[in-house]
Structures are given as structure tokens and as C-alpha cells.
């Protein structure tokens, strides 16, 4: 008898408890972020140059800088970010469930992710492509010579699908070695579990840079896919999508217009000769108001970590261990693909 009473009480309690679950997120993300006073940003679990922790356990890197830019734009404070490291497998689930406000985690923009997974890619912060790394001693010079090789591949990525397609269309075989994180891939590759490691070329450069003897490994010339990496938000809140999109565009446009962390204070103090600089920095027009942000949101973004070019050079550029050249990621005026729509 006692058991029955207990069971019914338990059931009743559970019914009332789940009633509360029914309303999840929904309201405007922008308002939620402002209320909370911090931005929840999903990042990589650790990829040198893109998202890694420094000696003080502070997150830094090229992808992290996008989170900081958005926090600076919305809250005026680039440090008001709660970072949430997510794996390849869980990233979209975490974003869609509302646990994070945005994802900035070397994620490739593809049709099915954009449309079927109900995500909104707001732009591209790094134009990448998939490459291969092999030990130099093998003397391999082309990816087409990789017939029969064991290949380390992070499961659940677009690179996994590109890899299968590349080997199939070239009529050569390989043995997939599945691994879950970038650091595990590095370990497996060095231990010889695979003779080849494949991921985005930027990731290969970052991994190679962290090796004891980087010169013992070569990145093959073939780039077998287009991997436009960028920040994304979930469907259904276009206003928030606009905020993240134009925060990213501010970084890119600022480089084009010559606004840097060094001169932003001077340029935003009073209106300048160039009306687009004025609109971007909020000394003219009401672009901030249209987004629901302070008028000087653009200035706050640049003050945080500098413009796109400065961020690139600081975290992954040629003077860092990663040593990536701008390549496709140069401004359109320099023959690259970066092209921010006009601020007007």
C-alpha cells in the first residue's frame, strides 16, 4: 500500500515538473543576452590558433575573437563571454537546443546544414579547404599516391565525406581510422596509427605547428574541397542573426577601411572625412539603433581585438607558429575573397 501512495506521489511530482520544460527558448536571443549580461558562445574543444586556452586559462584564438567581437558589440565588453567548448558531434544539437547563443567553431557552411539542420550561417571568417599531411620520410608528393594508406579522420565532419568522395572518384583505396578530437588525431598520427592525417588545411597547419619536429611532416599540395568556415546561429531569430553577421562584417570592413585598434579611438572621437567610416563607428547615421545595439558598437568591436587583419596576424598569421598566409582570406582589393557588404 505504501508503495502505491509513493508511486502516485512520484508520478504527480513528475507531471508538474515536466510542465515547466515545455517552454524552452523562444524570445529574442538579443534580449536574452542583454538580460544575462554575457554571451554564450560555442567554440572548439581546442585547436591551436583558432580556440585554445592561454596560461591563465583564458580562451583565445581566431574563432574566439569572433565571439569577443559579438560580446563587445552587444554588451560593450569583449570579456563578457561564457565559452562552451563543443565537439564535432554535439555542436549543432547544443546550438539548436538553445544552450548557446552562437557557434564559432571552424564549421563548414553547407547546404544541408543551412537548410535541413535549421541553422543560419551568417558569413565566412575563414575560407579553407581540405588537405593531407604525411610524414616526409614517405616521399609522397601527391594525394593521388595515397592508395592503400590508413587515414586519420575526425568522424562526423564534412572532411569525412570529402575523403570518401576523393578516394572513390580517383579509384584508390584507403583505410579510415576514426578519431573524435583534433588532439587525439595528432596523437594517433604521431604513433603511426595512420600514415596520413586529413582535415582543413588551416587545421593541418595548426597541428603541424604543435609537433616537436614540424619539418618532418609535409602538407600535400592538393586541396580537395571548399570549406568556408564561419559563425552560425539557429533558425528563427533573424534579428540575432543580423547582429552576429554585421559584427563579423564590421571586422572585415574595418580592415578594408583602414580602421585598426591603434587608430579607432581617434577615428571614433569625431566624424571623419569618410562617411562609411563614420557610419561604421557610429559618429554618423543610426546603424546601431537599427540593430538594437549602441551607436558605437562598431568602435567597441575594433577596440576589443582589432580588425580582421589584426586578428588574423595575431593568432594564425605568418609570424605565429601556425604560419598561415592570407591567401583566399585577403581582402577583395588584394585578390582575396573577403568582401563585406556596404555599411549604409
Amino acid at each position: 500500500m505504501k508503495k502505491n501512495v509513493f508511486l502516485s506521489a512520484l508520478a504527480a511530482a513528475a507531471v508538474t515538473a515536466t510542465g515547466a520544460l515545455a517552454d524552452g527558448h523562444g524570445g529574442a536571443t538579443l534580449a536574452a543576452v542583454k538580460d544575462r549580461g554575457s554571451l554564450k558562445c560555442g567554440i572548439s574543444t581546442g585547436l591551436v590558433g583558432f580556440a585554445s586556452q592561454d596560461a591563465n586559462d583564458e580562451w583565445e584564438g581566431f574563432d574566439v575573437a569572433v565571439c569577443r567581437a559579438v560580446a563587445a558589440a552587444v554588451l560593450g565588453d569583449p570579456t563578457a563571454v561564457e565559452f562552451r567548448p563543443v565537439t564535432n558531434k554535439e555542436r549543432f544539437e547544443v546550438l539548436n537546443s538553445g544552450d548557446i547563443d552562437m557557434l564559432s567553431r571552424n564549421t563548414t557552411w553547407t547546404f544541408s546544414r543551412d537548410v535541413d539542420l535549421k541553422l543560419e550561417f551568417v558569413g565566412v571568417n575563414y575560407y579553407d579547404g581540405q588537405g593531407f599531411m604525411v610524414p616526409k620520410e614517405l616521399g609522397v608528393s601527391s594525394a593521388k599516391d595515397l592508395d592503400g594508406a590508413p587515414v586519420c579522420i575526425q568522424s562526423g565532419t564534412t572532411t569525412e565525406l570529402n575523403l570518401a568522395d576523393f578516394f572513390r572518384t580517383n579509384n584508390i583505396s584507403y583505410q579510415p581510422v576514426s578519431i573524435t578530437t583534433a588532439s587525439e588525431a595528432q596523437q594517433a598520427y604521431l604513433a603511426g596509427r595512420c600514415a596520413v592525417y586529413t582535415t582543413d588545411a588551416s587545421g593541418l597547419a595548426a597541428t603541424r605547428a604543435s609537433f616537436e619536429n614540424p619539418e618532418d611532416h609535409v602538407v600535400l599540395p592538393e586541396i580537395i574541397s571548399k570549406e568556408p568556415l564561419g559563425p552560425l546561429v539557429r533558425h528563427g531569430d533573424s534579428e540575432w542573426g543580423d547582429v552576429v553577421r554585421w559584427s563579423l562584417n564590421t571586422l572585415i570592413a574595418a580592415e578594408e577601411l583602414g580602421i585598426t585598434s591603434a587608430n579607432v579611438g581617434e577615428l571614433s572621437a569625431a566624424p571623419t572625412e569618410n562617411p562609411e567610416i563614420n557610419r561604421l563607428l557610429g559618429t554618423e547615421g543610426n546603424l546601431g539603433e537599427m540593430l538594437g545595439l549602441p551607436a558605437d558598437f562598431g568602435a567597441a568591436i575594433i577596440q576589443a581585438d582589432g580588425n580582421y587583419g589584426e586578428i588574423f596576424e595575431k593568432y594564425i598569421g605568418e609570424n605565429t607558429p601556425i604560419g598561415l598566409s592570407r591567401g583566399l582570406n585577403a581582402q577583395w582589393t588584394d585578390g582575396g575573397l573577403l568582401y563585406a557588404p556596404p555599411f549604409r
Binding site: 564535432n88 558531434k89 549543432f92 544541408s112 546544414r113 535541413d116 539542420l117 568522424s155 562526423g156 565532419t157 569525412e160 565525406l161
Partner: peptide
């Protein structure tokens, strides 16, 4: 794992 991830 992979199927879940690729199809969502």
C-alpha cells in the same frame, strides 16, 4: 555517431 551527425 556519423549518421546522426551527417543527417542531424
Amino acid at each position: 555517431g556519423v549518421t546522426l551527425n551527417q543527417t542531424g
